[in-house]
Design a binder for these strands. Structure first.
Length: 655
DNA sequence: GCACTTTATGTTTTT
DNA sequence: CATAAAGTGC
């Protein structure tokens, strides 16, 4: 382990009790975690299936498994329990569902499913109120408060109303045998509190825990951690309070402090040497973050030399910003003879990506978009998924409605309304109620026939989905529901073709997953709710990376363009209003520290919002990091810019 | 009663 | 630009 520094090695080998590693950006925390896993397996003889590593995203989990695999044998690495908090919670719940009155094949509702459910339950309420309620519910769930407790604690009218919504929402989820993301953490904690024997079983199963991105855990996740480690207290938490950017999701950097209070024998190791960035970049980051209240004093340093200065530019509007950033990127790459994949364009919110996408497309520069709307959010995927969800969980009424009505098969709103009322009276799921005799009497023959046929179809396919292999059932299902012709009948040809391609890709991915893991379709559905994006094979493609700041956390790039660095964007307007500018500052800090060699910061003077132009001021963060004030770039010259680029190309070609 | 067409509308970040 | 609600034809 000669390539680790003293502190890193100490963190890797420390096993005397709970350990907190305060790891600054780029200080090699992933390396410490993977080395520690290898150490536990090789030197301590711990079976790899008894080691649980918890990451923040699925992508990080995959990477960690891969990197551990480089140190250990493939098979040993495969047995490691590497997952997100949510995936771990889901695994526990599938196994212990009965203890909570759930079936093992419960559905997992994503945020969109939950919003739809709330909208359906409270049709009379407007969107804003529902969003507010949803936010409240999430906060309550993360604080382990049941609806009744929330109702008792509600202080004002809005909270009272939100608590009433919470009550109905919970009842619906339970009726649908469904859970939301918060439940995946909350319910295991509840389970462990109520059933000591189950808690001990899991404590025995997982002997050592490693938690990455600890600053992003919320109270509930912390409780889960405490239950899992139990009296043995064998864990390593790795985190950086300066990179806590998920406060809106209940994450609380105070959790770092709480750790030293709850575990008096907690050992703390700081990693401050940065192996990623040049000094000028680090200094800018340090100066910026000095404006925040600090939990732990920490100063990053590096031995990588000064590097080039941080460049700040201001542009006339958002389109010119995109154009000149792309132009500069292009020129920079030519000059340095680098690769597209050395470059990243990072922004606060997803919608900013659009302008950069079109600028990149105009210049015929390859790019990949990470973050943003996921593959699984696409309508065609959700349509198809509804069938699969219904196979796994017939109580899933939203899945029933979606599958029953897409593509259209003569089941309309009136039929569904009657069915809904009947099912409510009989306290059955829509699917079960639809098969009952009593319903037929309330519907006309014309209404009942398509419904009955649909139910029979589901029963038939469900039996097959449970028994046969995915590669056999999938094509049959796709053919049977005639989705392709449905697409071409309803969409423009190009759109229809694109959607069908997506669906085929998804089906292919499922089939492949089924083959390698030897699972049936019903088994597979259970796991996909937690996956947000398909990990495509073509990660090797040489392309500029476009990403939100949140999605860029944990990654690094040689050259970074931080764009849209303006007041009301970064810091975000809502954050200014709600007094959470410190978190925005950390977000900026995360952005800066992604860069290894060069950092470019840009902002626009005005941008089009909705239909009119708004003026934008450079972000306060630019001054705070001590950068040169924005120099207006000589624009609008598209022509001269292009000419200059061509001259540069010619010069380089001749060299 | 069902399916399709038009019109309004809206954007923080993600498991 | 893409989805969601209201409106119109069959």
């Amino acid at each position: 382990m000669h390539d680790l520094n003293v502190r890193q090695r100490e963190a890797t080998q420390y096993l005397d009790g709970p350990l907190l590693v305060l790891a600054g950006a780029g200080s090699g925390k992933t390396r410490v975690i993977t080395r520690k896993i290898a150490w536990l397996v090789r030197e301590c003889g711990l079976a790899s299936r008894r080691i649980a590593a918890i990451t923040f995203t699925n992508k990080a989990a995959r990477e960690m498994r891969e990197r551990a695999g480089e140190l250990l044998s493939k098979k040993t690495a495969n047995d490691l329990q590497v997952s997100t908090f949510h995936a771990l919670g889901a695994r526990i719940l599938r196994e212990e569902a009965s203890a909570l009155g759930y079936k093992p094949r419960f559905s997992i509702f994503d945020a969109a499913d939950c919003t739809a459910l709330l909208a359906d339950l409270f049709k009379e309420l407007e969107k804003g109120a529902l969003r507010q309620a949803q936010q409240h519910i999430s906060t309550w769930k993360n604080a382990m408060l049941a609806p009744e407790a929330a109702q008792a604690l509600a202080e004002n009218g809005t909270e009272q109303r939100a608590a009433r919504i919470y009550l109905a929402y919970e009842a619906s989820l339970k009726a649908y045998q469904a859970m939301d993301f918060d439940d995946l953490i909350r319910l295991p904690v509840q389970l462990f509190m109520e059933h000591p024997e189950i808690r001990e079983k899991w404590q025995d199963r997982l002997r050592y825990l490693l938690i990455d991105e600890y600053q992003d855990t919320n109270a509930c996740q912390y409780a889960l951690l405490q239950h899992l480690t139990g009296p043995r207290q064998q864990f390593t938490a790795v985190g950086d309070d300066d990179q806590s950017i998920y406060g809106w999701r209940g994450a609380d950097p105070e959790n770092l402090k709480r750790l030293s209070q709850d575990f008096p024998n907690l050992k703390i190791i700081k990693l401050e040497q940065n192996y990623r960035s040049t000094t000028r970049i680090l200094e800018a980051a340090n100066r910026l973050i000095a404006h925040n209240e600090k939990l732990f004093e920490k100063k990053l340093w590096s031995e990588l030399g000064h590097g080039s200065p941080v460049r700040v530019t201001q542009h006339e509007d958002h389109e010119q910003e995109a154009e000149s950033v792309v132009m500069r990127l292009n020129a920079h790459r030519l000059e340095h003879r680098g690769q597209w994949s050395d470059y990243a364009i990072l922004y606060r919110s997803n919608h900013l990506a659009r302008f950069f996408e079109s600028a990149l497309r105009n210049q015929r520069i390859p790019y990949v978009l990470s973050g943003g709307s996921s593959f699984f959010d696409k309508t065609e995927i959700k349509d198809f998924l509804a069938y699969l969800r219904l196979f796994a969980n017939p109580e899933d009424d939203p899945a029933f409605i979606r599958a029953a009505t897409t593509p259209r098969r003569g089941i309309g709103s009136e039929t569904l309304k009657t069915l809904g009322i009947y099912a409510g009276e009989r306290r059955r799921s829509l699917f079960h109620a639809a098969g009952e005799e009593g319903l037929a009497q309330r519907l006309s023959a014309r209404q009942h026939a398509p419904l009955a046929e649909f139910c029979q179809f589901i029963v038939r396919m469900r039996a097959r989905a449970e028994q046969e292999a995915a590669q056999v059932v999938l094509p049959d299902l796709l053919t049977a529901i005639e989705y392709e012709s449905y697409l071409y009948a309803h969409e423009e040809e190009r759109v229809a073709a694109a959607r069908w391609t997506n669906l085929c890709e998804f089906s292919d991915w499922l089939r492949q997953k089924g083959e390698t893991e030897g699972k049936t379709l019903v088994d597979l559905v259970q796991t996909i709710a937690l996956i947000q994006q398909l990990d495509k094979e073509e990660t090797t493609a040489d392309a500029v990376q476009l990403s939100t700041l949140h999605a860029a956390k944990g990654l690094e790039y040689r050259h970074v363009f931080l764009v849209g660095v303006e007041e009301e964007i970064l810091p975000h307007r809502e954050a200014i209003a709600s007094g959470t500018v410190e978190e925005e500052r950390r977000l900026m800090y995360v952005g800066i520290t992604r860069a290894r060699q060069s950092l470019f910061i840009s902002c626009a003077r005005r941008r089009k919002q909705h239909r009119d132009w708004v003026f934008c001021a450079p972000s306060r963060f630019i001054a705070e990091m001590g950068a040169q004030p924005p120099s207006s770039t000589p624009l609008p010259d598209k022509a001269t810019g292009q000419a200059r680029l061509n001259a540069l190309k010619a010069m380089l070609a001749g060299r």
